[in-house]
Design a protein around this nucleic acid. Sequence first.
DNA 1: CTGTTAGCGCTTTCAT
DNA 2: ATGAAAGCGCTAACAG
Lengths: 319, 319
Amino acid sequence: MARRAGVSLATASRVLNGSSRTVGARLAERVHAAADELSYSPHGPAQAMARGHTMSIGMLAPDIADPYFTQLSAGATEAAGLRSMMLSVAVHHADAARELQQVRSFRAQRVRGLMIAGSRPAGEDPGPLLRALGELPAVVVGPPVGDLPVIGFANREGAADLARALLQVGYQRFVILAGPVEHTTSVERTEGFTAVLDDAAAPYVVQRAAFSRDGGHQAMVDALAAARGGATCVFAVTDMMALGAMTALHEHGVEAGRDVGVAGFNDLPVLADLRPGLSTVRLPLREAGQAAIEALLGGDLPAEPFRGEVVLRASTPGC
Amino acid sequence: MARRAGVSLATASRVLNGSSRTVGARLAERVHAAADELSYSPHGPAQAMARGHTMSIGMLAPDIADPYFTQLSAGATEAAGLRSMMLSVAVHHADAARELQQVRSFRAQRVRGLMIAGSRPAGEDPGPLLRALGELPAVVVGPPVGDLPVIGFANREGAADLARALLQVGYQRFVILAGPVEHTTSVERTEGFTAVLDDAAAPYVVQRAAFSRDGGHQAMVDALAAARGGATCVFAVTDMMALGAMTALHEHGVEAGRDVGVAGFNDLPVLADLRPGLSTVRLPLREAGQAAIEALLGGDLPAEPFRGEVVLRASTPGC
DNA sequence: CTGTTAGCGCTTTCAT
DNA sequence: ATGAAAGCGCTAACAG
C-alpha cells in the first residue's frame, strides 16, 4: 500500500484527492513524493465503492458509426471531459433486449447517469426500460420516454420551415422518404412537412424504409419504380437517408439539384463536402450531447427543444 | 443488503454471478426471486475491487468525430460487447498532456486494457506514456509506440500499390497531399507512394498540411496557388484530406475525375456516396478495432499488419 | 452444496 | 492538523 509514505495513512487520501480537509504542507509534500515514486494510482473502483459513485457516464445508442450519434457522443465526451468524467458508450443496434441488458450493466457499474439516444417505437411500453433504470438518473435525447427528462428537437417546426423554404423556391410536387411508421422522429418530421404541403395544396407521396442510409436508397428506388407522377423534390427525413437517395437517383440517371431537388435533415458535418451541397435542417447535435451531460450532472435541462435552422444548398436550386 | 434473500449470503454471490461453484436449484430460485423483488443490481465497483479488475476497456483517440476513429471504435465496441465488456472512449485532440492525464485516469479506473489509436509524432519520446501506463495492458493501433504490442497497417505497401495502379491507368504527374512531417502514418504513405513514382521516373511534388479534412483543403489550395506544373493526379494520404481537396478543387473550378485524378487512403464507408467515387486504399478498420480488443483480452496479436486493398473509382478514370 | 470469514483500497467520522 | 478504525458490497478461500 502506497502508505509507506514515511508516516501518514488517511492523510494520504486527503492529499491525493479532493478532500475538503486541509493538510500540512510538509506532509502533503512527503505524500506526493512517495506517490510518484511508487507511481501510485488511485484505484477507482475502491473510490467508487467508498464514495458511492464512479466518474463515468453511460451513453446508449443504436449505432455509433452513424454520424448523428457520433456527433452526439462527441459533444457528450467533450462535456464529460470538462468535468473529468468519462463517457462509456454501448450500442444496441435497436435490439431492445440488448439495450435492457446494457442499461443493467451501466447501472451495475454505478455510472453517474445515463444518456439515452435514438428514438424508439412510438407505441413501445417504456416500463421495462424505466424499471431497468431503477434509481439511475437518465436523460433521453430525442423523443420522450416515459417521464424521463428529455433533450428534444423541434422536428415538426424544422420540417415545416424546410417545407416552406422549398415551396418558396418553387418546388411543387414532393416525395417524402420516411422511416418506419412507428419511428417517432420520422413521424414528427413527416407530419411537420406534410402539414405545410397540405396547407399549400401541394401534392406528395410518402415512401417508407429503414431509418438509415440504406433505407434512403431503398425508399428512393421504390419511389422511382412506382414512378410517382414526376415529383420535383425529394425530402428525406434524415441526411443519411438523403445520401442514399442521391445515390439511388444517380444510379437511375437523375441528378440531384439538376433534375430534382433533394433535402435532408440534421446537417451532418461529414456531408459538408457532398456535391451538390445538401439542403437540410441544421440541428445542434454536439450542443445537445453536451446539454445531456450537463443535465445529468445536476445542471438543468434546456427548457425548450433545440430548434433547427434551414440551410438551402445546391441540391435544391429551386425551379 | 440484498441478502435478506430469506436464507443465504455468499450463495447469493455464487448464483448472481458467473461463479464456478454450483448451487442448489431451490436456493438459486429463492435468490433470484429476492433479487428481482428488490431489483438488485450487482455493484460493479465492489465486484471490481474484489476481483481486481473491471469490465471496461479504454480507448484513446485524438478525435472521435473523425470517421477513421469512429470505425475503429465501432469494431472495438462490437468486440467488447461480445465479451460483455464495455468500451470507454477518451479523446485528447492530439494534446499530449491531456492524453497522459487520460491514461492515468484509465489506469485508476482499472480498465482491463487500453487501446491507443492515432499516430503520434515520429520522434516523440514514448517514455512518459509508457510510464503512465504502468502495468496496464495496452495495444496501439497504428504506428508502434515503444515496445507496445501493435496492430499495424501496411501503409507503405498500400500506397505503393495505389501508385502503381494510378500509373497504370495513365497518370503521369502527381501532387501528394501529406500530413505534418513528423506524422508517421503520413510519412509511410508518402514514402510508399513516392518510391514507386521514383522508380517510374514520374514527377511529383509534396504539399503538407494538417492531417484532417481541413488540412486537405488547405494543402490543395496551396498546391493550386503554387500552380505546380499541371499535375494530372492528386494523392491525399487520407480520405478525409482527399475530401477537403476535392472541395478545394471544385471551388477553383476543376473537377475531380474529369480534370484531374484524386485518390485517398482508408476507404471510409461514409464516403461511399461521394461523387465521383473516391479511389482509395481500403483498410479493414473495424476488424482492426476488433483485433485490438481481442489482443487486449488475451487473444493473440495479428502477426502481420493489416494489408490494404486498392479500390479505383470514378475519381481516377485514368487518362 | 452451503455458510463463515477475511480482506479488496479507499473515504470518513471520530478521537486526539 | 493528524491518526485510528469502521465500513462501502462483493468474492474467494476455507470450513462444514
